[in-house]
Design a protein around this nucleic acid. Structure first.
Length: 536
RNA sequence: ACCCCCUUAGCUCAGCCGGCAGAGCAACGGAUUCUUAAUCCGUGGGUCGCAGGUUCGAAUCCUGCAGGGGGUACCA
């Protein structure tokens, strides 16, 4: 872990923001870093940017010796506005429109509610990425009247809030506007009209569907909710939030963050938190290949199918929050893995670079780790090579790892990481890699391909070479032997390569032949090539 | 209308709380009798969008302008 002294010089955005928080909020016993999303659907990788941004800043605060509280507010008292496309029995769910999502049943019938189902989906994946916030469930808070005070404060400043919001509106808010909404106790829906407030804790409303009226006590019923544009600031006050980033859609003049600042200050007397704007995430290379289990949304889990956790972190750590970037599922995946491996080599001093670059990459590497930084430089199996190994072993990850030199003395932790990479590589090959990258090794049991006599003799000569002298060869010398065999049999090297690929994988091309043969090993090569000895 | 971001090599971009303009890819030259964007060695290439300002010194800070992109004002 870096010393505080070096962190002061860090140019990483997480460190810069951590320093800014301490400077602007003054000395505090702890700093509260907040994030929050509505669980009204699958949490996608774009939402994840907010979570990881907060996690990184909280980590940066801790790295400089501060206490950081990382909270994550689930707005599960939000309204069910539309039935998502990926929901089974969508028709049945029409009946729950306008209900709070915490009361909508789980369409997959596993969790206690639709909201909870979405929450669980994310909460189970985040620890894999080293993200462990303290969850706050707003439905609980509201229904236990935990926000009663904050609601009353908003009601007391009704006119001020209206005026502040009106500053940026084309249509002023109507006279009957209130900063709250009410869920009807008769229908569970928010199709209600607020009638009056007694200046203290009593709110009277009418349910539009049933035409019934009722008076609620803010201290004992949880049916009243603050409108979103006020709820946010109320929570800043309630949790004393010091830092909360927001998407670019909130960071415009007149946008939600803008009005939130003034409301926070003037209504709640709370200095707005330090913030920054983060840009959107796009997706590249997923077109038509697969229909995500969650509609056309790419979830955090979907990304982890192809990227190791530390590489997912690396993507976000290494990109300034206000820059848009794409999560790629195409050929870029290889480059992303290579970039990470390079960063790792720089961290461990295996690859020499200038001091400025080294410091930068080292900090990125630290922040990319799920847990602590490894004690020694991990063995790297390049992603592309791993793809080849896995295709040789038909997806058997442990055997693929074993084919790579130096893997017999690894710790369990190191093996775990390699297996995870293997699993990603295998997923990528099967689902996203271009056809050129894919091959299926022959077993030797299938009918041999048609060859001319000359071709067959050359194949057998190469088979003999591997069977008798594989142990003496390295990649280079075997490559030379291949050329010698081609020459001795009077065929073009190019033709021999093509034949060999046809014989081995049924295609005109494949992995570099010499290395490929050595990786396959004598017995495997013999199984496939052996039948050509007897073929006439 | 308002707000924000971007503009740096042919392309994609890094560099931005000031200190000799960088990387990857492409191109070009060479090597290699292989190959899954092939590998290795080497070379060339930029008025840092434009115009001002601050400074000993500006890609970097400030002001203005131009072009491109995004966002906001209704609902959450």
């Amino acid at each position: 872990m870096s010393s505080t002294a070096s962190l002061d010089n860090s140019t990483h955005w997480a460190d810069i923001n951590a320093a800014r928080i301490v400077r602007e909020r003054g000395p505090k016993e702890h700093y509260t870093c907040a994030s929050g999303i509505t669980p009204s659907g699958t949490i996608h990788i774009g939402n994840f940017r907010e979570i990881i941004s907060v996690e990184l800043v909280a980590r940066a605060l801790r790295d400089r010796g501060q206490n950081a509280r990382f909270i994550y507010s689930w707005d599960d008292y939000d309204v069910f506005r539309k039935v998502p496309r990926n929901v089974p029995n969508a028709g049945k769910f029409e009946a729950y429109l306008r209900w709070p999502i915490i009361l909508v049943p789980d369409p997959w019938e596993k969790e206690s509610s639709y909201a909870r189902a979405n929450e669980v989906e994310l909460e189970t994946v985040l620890p894999e990425l080293g993200v462990t916030p303290e969850y706050i469930y707003q439905a609980d808070q509201y229904r236990n009247s935990g926000y009663a005070e904050g609601i009353r404060t908003a009601l007391q400043h009704r006119e001020l809030i209206r005026a502040l919001l009106n500053e940026h509106r084309t249509q002023p808010l109507p006279p009957e506007w209130w900063p709250i909404s009410v869920f009807s106790s008769f229908t569970n829906k928010d199709t209600t009209v607020v009638l009056e407030w007694d200046g203290e804790w009593a709110v009277r409303y009418r349910c539009e569907e049933t035409d019934k009226e009722e008076t609620l006590d803010l201290r004992s019923t949880g049916l009243v909710k603050l409108l979103w544009r006020i709820d946010w600031q109320m929570r800043w006050k309630h949790e004393d939030v010091d830092f909360e980033p927001a998407g670019k859609e909130h960071h415009s003049a007149g946008g939600s963050f803008d009005t939130a600042r003034t409301v926070s200050q003037q209504v709640y007397g709370q200095t707005p938190p330090v913030t920054f704007k983060y840009d959107f995430i796009s997706i590249k290379g997923r077109g038509g290949k697969i229909s995500s289990s969650s509609g056309d949304v790419v979830s955090v889990r979907d990304v982890l199918e192809v990227y190791q956790p530390e590489i997912v972190r690396h993507l976000f750590v290494g990109t300034r929050p206000n820059a848009e970037f794409a999560i790629s599922f195409d050929l870029d995946v290889i480059k992303i893995y290579e970039d990470y491996d390079k960063c790792e080599r720089i961290y461990f001093g295996i690859e020499e670079v200038g001091e400025k670059r080294r410091a930068k990459e080292a900090r990125i590497y630290e922040l990319s780790q799920v847990h602590a930084v490894p004690e020694r430089a991990p063995l790297q199996i390049p992603f592309r090579h791993f793809c080849n190994l896995l295709q040789i072993t038909a997806g058997d990850i442990d055997r693929a790892v074993a084919l790579f030199p130096g893997t017999d003395s690894l710790s369990e932790e190191e093996l775990h990481r390699l297996r995870r990479r293997g699993s990603c590589a295998w997923n990528w090959i099967n689902r996203f890699a271009p056809d050129d990258f894919r091959f299926t090794l022959k077993t030797g049991a299938e009918p041999p391909i048609e060859l001319s006599d000359v071709q067959r003799v050359a194949v057998v000569a190469l088979a003999d070479e591997v069977r008798d002298r594989a142990a003496e060869h390295d990649e280079k010398s075997l490559a030379q032997a291949i050329y010698d065999i081609a020459a001795a049999n009077g065929i073009e090297p190019k033709e021999l390569f093509q034949i060999m690929y046809q014989v081995l994988v049924g295609k005109d091309q494949g992995p570099r032949l010499a290395g490929f043969l050595l990786t396959l090993g004598q017995s495997r090569v013999e199984e496939i090539l052996g039948p050509y000895r007897t073929q006439r």
